[in-house]
Design a protein around this nucleic acid. Structure first.
Lengths: 213, 213
DNA sequence: GTCTATAACCTGATAGAC
DNA sequence: GTCTATCAGGTTATAGAC
């Protein structure tokens, strides 16, 4: 729900053509990355011609920037704010994982897209992230919850950094490496969807199990 | 050690120039991906000119193919054969995680590289994987170990597929998404190396904890 | 705003001398 | 085997008509 608001605000004042272009661009950039994307393919997909792309977005760089920013806006809030809310840790984890898997099921290329573009252009990413105010996240609430559990002797002494890395790895990697897993484990599309769905339950269990003493 | 053998066999009969080219190509392709890589950059890095690249490797495609094959050869055995050995599950996990993290520390772009190239060209990957005889993996030994533990009431009823996905996610994603994590969690290079090192112990603990009843 | 035509540039690949 | 010079094709970007 957070994300539809963001999307709505961003797209609100745009013309129909501009929306069509943006959606086509998102699709192509997500799939192929900046270097693999072709302005011609975006134009074809939006059913307009190349010149119009430049009319609306000046250059490939600017168009990419718009797409990349939107990806961060979609994924940022759910990633970080959701984890830092005033909700019991256990419940928060379940909600987060379920929301994340739903979101990325709708935009399955986002994790791989962001990862790849970051590796090939770190500075661009850092700039965007920081201005996006999710730059360096605080996670104060999560930290204090974790510390509280540790002090009570309820949780193991795990750093919040490792915890975050574990949660995201378990959530995001099955999407980013989907073709690898499907090939190597010989799972068809329907089967893999089931695997992903199962993980909504599985991941919180794993994380909580790994925290408990 | 498996990997040095593979490397040795492959590089054995090549001239010095060919080796230099291959290593430069590996570096550039790993970093930038096929679409982002430039023959000129490879030539510069190998300290020869573009024409020589074509003399040795005919085309960008063929050069890429060589690099991609080598990445699979490096990662394939450690990924799958290691997990299917006749060793107690607990010990096997620890060894695997430690070896994997060491290998990928040396070639940190491999996970992201393979993932990205797969998304942009699935058929190529499938062909390579299958001929590489790690195509569809059997994991018979791992399966029977897991089943044995489940039957004994020692382990939970987790599928081997989910287990594999969990292990690889926890191992590979911190490398593939390293720039994201470092930025967002505000960790410098030395700090992140420490985080990765810690995971050699942490990951087997998490996996075993999640298995136990 | 939308189109066609084309400029300007880049990149992979080859020809040919040494 | 290695180099310089150059071609051929493709891609981003713009000019200009409607």
């Amino acid at each position: 729900m957070i994300n539809s608001v963001v999307f709505y605000q961003t797209m609100n004042d745009k013309s129909e053509t501009e929306k069509k272009i943006f959606e086509a661009a998102r699709d192509v950039f997500h799939r192929r990355g900046f270097d693999g994307a072709r302005m011609q393919e975006i134009a074809d997909k939006a059913k307009i011609n190349k010149a119009l792309l430049h009319y609306y977005y000046r250059s490939k760089d600017k168009l990419f920037e718009a797409v990349f920013r939107e990806a961060l806006k979609r994924i940022g809030p759910i990633m970080f704010e959701a984890l830092d809310r005033e909700v019991p840790l256990e419940k928060k984890l379940k909600m987060f994982v379920s929301n994340y898997i739903d979101l990325v099921t709708k935009h399955p290329f986002i994790p791989g897209f962001i990862m790849h573009e970051m590796h090939t252009n770190k500075t661009r990413f850092k700039t965007f992230l920081k201005e996006n105010k999710h730059g360096i996240i605080k996670l104060n609430k999560l930290k204090s919850q974790l510390k509280e559990g540790i002090d009570k002797g309820q949780y193991k002494n795990v750093s919040v950094e490792q915890l975050i890395i574990n949660v995201f790895s378990l959530c995001a990697f099955p999407f980013a490496a989907r073709p690898v897993f499907q090939t190597v484990l010989d799972i068809d599309d329907a089967g893999y969807r089931k695997v992903l769905e199962e993980r909504k339950k599985l991941i919180p269990e794993i994380i909580l199990m790994s925290l408990k003493k």
